[in-house]
Lab assay of single mutants.
Amino acid sequence: MAEQVALSRTQVCGILREELFQGDAFHQSDTHIFIIMGASGDLAKKKIYPTIWWLFRDGLLPENTFIVGYARSRLTVADIRKQSEPFFKATPEEKLKLEDFFARNSYVAGQYDDAASYQRLNSHMNALHLGSQANRLFYLALPPTVYEAVTKNIHESCMSQIGWNRIIVEKPFGRDLQSSDRLSNHISSLFREDQIYRIDHYLGKEMVQNLMVLRFANRIFGPIWNRDNIACVILTFKEPFGTEGRGGYFDEFGIIRDVMQNHLLQMLCLVAMEKPASTNSDDVRDEKVKVLKCISEVQANNVVLGQYVGNPDGEGEATKGYLDDPTVPRGSTTATFAAVVLYVENERWDGVPFILRCGKALNERKAEVRLQFHDVAGDIFHQQCKRNELVIRVQPNEAVYTKMMTKKPGMFFNPEESELDLTYGNRYKNVKLPDAYERLILDVFCGSQMHFVRSDELREAWRIFTPLLHQIELEKPKPIPYIYGSRGPTEADELMKRVGFQYEGTYKWVNP
Rank of each mutant, 00 (worst) to 15 (best):
T76M: 07
L183R: 13
Y147D: 07
T10G: 15
T51D: 04
V108Y: 06
S188H: 09
F241T: 14
N122I: 05
R136T: 02
D24N: 11
A149E: 08
A134G: 12
P62L: 03
K205W: 15
F221Y: 14
E94H: 09
A90R: 03
A44W: 04
Y147C: 14
I154T: 03
L137K: 01
E18T: 05
H186G: 11
V169N: 06
N218K: 00
N64G: 07
Q22F: 15
N210S: 08
V169M: 08
D114W: 05
G163C: 04
E93F: 06
C13G: 04
G23N: 15
E18Q: 11
G23H: 15
V150N: 02
K152M: 08
Q119W: 09
L60Q: 03
I167D: 00
Q161I: 06
F34G: 01
G110W: 02
I230F: 02
G247H: 09
L43F: 13
K171I: 04
S106P: 00
S180R: 05
G248F: 11
L140I: 06
K45R: 14
E99Y: 03
W53R: 01
R9A: 06
S160G: 07
G163V: 02
L7C: 06
R136C: 09
S160H: 06
E170W: 01
F21M: 10
D113N: 04
R72G: 12
P240D: 10
A71Q: 02
L7Q: 15
I196E: 00
L140T: 02
Q4E: 11
E239N: 06
Y107F: 11
F101E: 00
N226C: 10
Q161G: 12
K45H: 10
E18R: 12
S29M: 14
F66A: 08
D79S: 07
L190P: 02
Y107Q: 07
E156I: 08
F56K: 02
Q22Y: 08
G110H: 00
V169E: 07
F34D: 01
T151R: 00
Q111D: 05
S8Q: 06
R192N: 13
S179K: 09
F250C: 04
C13F: 08
F221P: 03
L203P: 14
F101N: 00
T236S: 11
S29D: 14
V213M: 13
N165G: 04
V169I: 09
L137S: 04
Y147N: 12
T236P: 02
G163E: 00
S40M: 07
D200N: 15
G248P: 14
I220T: 06
Y112C: 03
Q195H: 06
Q4S: 06
G242E: 02
Q178R: 10
Y118E: 00
Q119P: 04
G245Y: 09
S189T: 07
S132T: 12
L121G: 00
R74F: 10
P240W: 05
A134V: 04
P144I: 13
I80E: 01
K238G: 12
V5D: 13
R219C: 12
P143I: 07
L137E: 02
A39L: 01
E239G: 02
T51N: 05
F237W: 13
I162G: 09
L96T: 14
D114K: 10
S8V: 06
L20W: 09
E239V: 10
S157F: 10
G14F: 04
V68R: 01
H155T: 05
T76F: 04
R219P: 06
H155Y: 08
T243A: 12
Q4T: 05
R192K: 09
E239P: 00
G247C: 14
L137H: 03
C232A: 10
S180N: 06
S117D: 14
N105V: 12
R227E: 02
F191D: 02
P144N: 14
T145R: 07
I224G: 09
Y107E: 01
I255T: 13
I15F: 13
D251F: 00
Q133L: 05
D100I: 14
N135E: 02
P172F: 05
S73R: 04
I199N: 03
I167K: 00
K171P: 14
S29N: 12
P62M: 02
L7F: 04
A141E: 02
Q22C: 04
F101V: 00
P62K: 06
Y70V: 09
A231V: 04
D79W: 04
A141P: 01
K171E: 05
V150D: 01
M125G: 01
G14S: 14
S184P: 02
S160T: 10
R72W: 04
Y197S: 00
Q195P: 00
F216H: 02
N185C: 14
E19T: 05
G110Y: 01
R120V: 13
Q133V: 08
S188P: 02
S29W: 10
V146Y: 05
K45A: 12
I234T: 15
E206N: 14
Y249I: 15
E85V: 11
L7R: 07
P62C: 02
I162L: 10
A71T: 05
Q111L: 06
S40L: 05
T151H: 04
H201W: 13
A78N: 12
S189Y: 05
P86A: 08
K205G: 15
E3C: 10
A25H: 14
L20R: 05
K47W: 13
V233E: 01
E244L: 12
I230L: 06
V169R: 00
R72Q: 09
R166S: 03
A109I: 05
G14M: 06
F241H: 12
V68I: 12
V77E: 07
K171F: 04
A116S: 06
Y202A: 12
F250H: 11
R72I: 10
G254R: 00
H129S: 05
D194N: 09
V77F: 08
R74S: 09
K45T: 08
L211Y: 04
I220N: 03
E252L: 12
E239T: 11
W53I: 00
R120D: 12
A44Q: 01
R72M: 11
F221E: 01
G254P: 02
E193P: 04
A141H: 04
E63P: 08
K47G: 06
N126S: 11
L177R: 13
K152F: 08
Y202W: 11
T236G: 04
F191A: 00
F253G: 06
S8N: 13
N229D: 05
N122D: 12
L55R: 00
G131R: 06
V108H: 05
L60V: 04
R198Y: 03
V213C: 06
H27D: 07
I35L: 06
A116F: 09
I36T: 02
F173P: 03
V68K: 00
F191Q: 00
C13D: 04
L214D: 02
L55H: 04
I35Q: 00
Y249Q: 12
M125R: 03
F87G: 03
I220L: 09
F56Y: 07
I48P: 01
I48V: 12
L128D: 01
Y118P: 00
K89W: 05
T145P: 09
I234K: 14
L137M: 14
L128T: 04
M125E: 00
P86E: 10
Q22G: 10
P240Y: 05
G204I: 15
A217D: 05
I52V: 05
K89C: 11
N135F: 01
A149M: 06
K205D: 15
G174W: 09
Y197H: 01
S188T: 15
Q22W: 10
A6W: 08
I36S: 00
A2E: 08
L140K: 00
I187R: 02
S189I: 08
V233N: 01
I33F: 11
E239K: 03
S73Q: 08
G131S: 11
N185R: 07
L235E: 01
L214Y: 14
A2Y: 11
L96S: 14
R227K: 08
S123R: 11
D42Q: 12
Q28T: 03
C13Q: 08
F21S: 09
Q195I: 04
V150I: 10
M37D: 00
S132R: 10
